[in-house]
């Protein structure tokens, strides 16, 4: 198994200031799958990855990375793993090719071994001919792609990516997604963290939603949607003008009618999100409400995410 985590607890601080960032996490990756760890800021995603790599000692629980116990044999286990960290950590003093050569050296790979692979690694990252380019001359997307190439120098069984596409433009995101799909097709197991639902829905064979250090849901994207939320959503917004009364918004409409016409209704800003198994009666009602506008769509992962983790802002 590429990664097996059982009962993982991570506590920061001691005594009255102690805070549990992970509270009994179970996670098991199957060989060759792409697994996405979803969660708002502070949910414990990065801490999970740090524990898995043996970079911080768990308070309780057991971890096996590529079959080896962590943190006891973390160093040996990391030899079989590639990591794309959230923050750029490329070496600004080196060119693209030198970054790959020096990083391979950390795995005990000789320069004569890695040098013939550099054109292939740079091509994989869409950086053909950039071997002599300085890091400062690269865009954010190019740096992330070079970091991905750097994570592959040791031909890892398991690739860990911490928010791989945060801060990238759509073109760069699509290129990263395409490359990650190519890696899973070749048999590499992938664990990535993200707070982009479309990223998880597109890439992940399975995913888990994490908040406050606990798994709230786990399964394939379809399973998670089917298990946790009504299939239909009608978003209602605009002005509501009931006969003889002053104008008011979607929230007032929802208070008066949503309970009878949908299974569940949430207000966020000026929009009412109505969740239902059958949207026909609700849509028929809305057809007679001038001023109100609506959007009818199937429920998606973001609806599940917001239902499970709440709509309040996270800092």
């Amino acid at each position: 198994m590429p990664l097996e985590i059982a009962g993982l607890v991570k506590r920061f601080g001691e005594g009255a200031e102690a805070k549990d960032v992970l509270r009994g996490l179970d996670l098991s990756l199957r060989p060759g799958e792409c697994f996405a760890l979803l969660g708002p800021n502070g949910a414990g995603k990065t801490t999970t990855l740090r524990c898995a790599l043996g970079l911080t000692a768990p308070t309780a629980g057991s971890i096996r990375l590529c079959g080896l116990p962590v943190p006891e044999q973390a160093r040996e286990a990391r030899a079989r793993v590639g990591v794309v960290p959230q923050i750029d950590s490329l070496d600004p003093d080196f060119t693209c090719a030198e970054n790959l050569i020096v990083f391979a050296g950390y795995f005990g790979i000789r320069e004569s071994e890695i040098r013939p692979r550099i054109p292939e690694l740079l091509a994989f990252a869409g950086l053909e001919g950039k071997d002599k380019a300085r890091i400062q001359s690269l865009s954010g997307g190019m740096k992330r792609r070079l970091t991905l190439a750097r994570a592959l120098v040791n031909k890892p069984q398991l690739l860990l990516l911490d928010e791989p596409t945060t801060g990238l433009d759509p073109q760069a995101r699509h290129l990263i997604w395409e490359r990650l799909r190519r890696l899973t097709a070749e048999g590499t197991t992938i664990l990535l963290t993200t707070h982009f639902m479309d990223e998880a829905e597109r890439l992940a064979d399975r995913l888990a939603i994490l908040d406050n250090g606990r798994m709230l849901a786990q399964g394939s994207p379809r399973e998670v949607i089917a298990a946790h939320i009504e299939p239909q959503v009608v978003e209602v917004f605009g002005d509501w003008k009931p006969g003889g009364q002053p104008d008011s918004g979607a929230a007032a409409w929802a208070a008066a009618h949503a309970g009878a016409l949908s299974r569940r209704c949430e207000i966020s800003g000026e929009t009412a999100f109505c969740y239902t198994d059958d949207a026909a009666p609700l849509l028929a009602h809305l057809a007679h409400q001038p001023g109100l506008r609506s959007l009818h769509r199937p429920a998606n992962l973001e609806d599940v995410f917001l239902k499970l983790t709440g709509r309040e802002l996270r800092d």
């Binding site: 970079l55 160093r75 990391r78 990591v83 960290p85 923050i87 950590s89 070496d91 950390y106 994570a151």
Partner: peptide, 10 residues
């Protein structure tokens, strides 16, 4: 963050 990058290696 050079050290952090290196710590991801063995």
């Amino acid at each position: 963050k050079t050290w952090e990058a290196i710590m991801n290696a063995p």
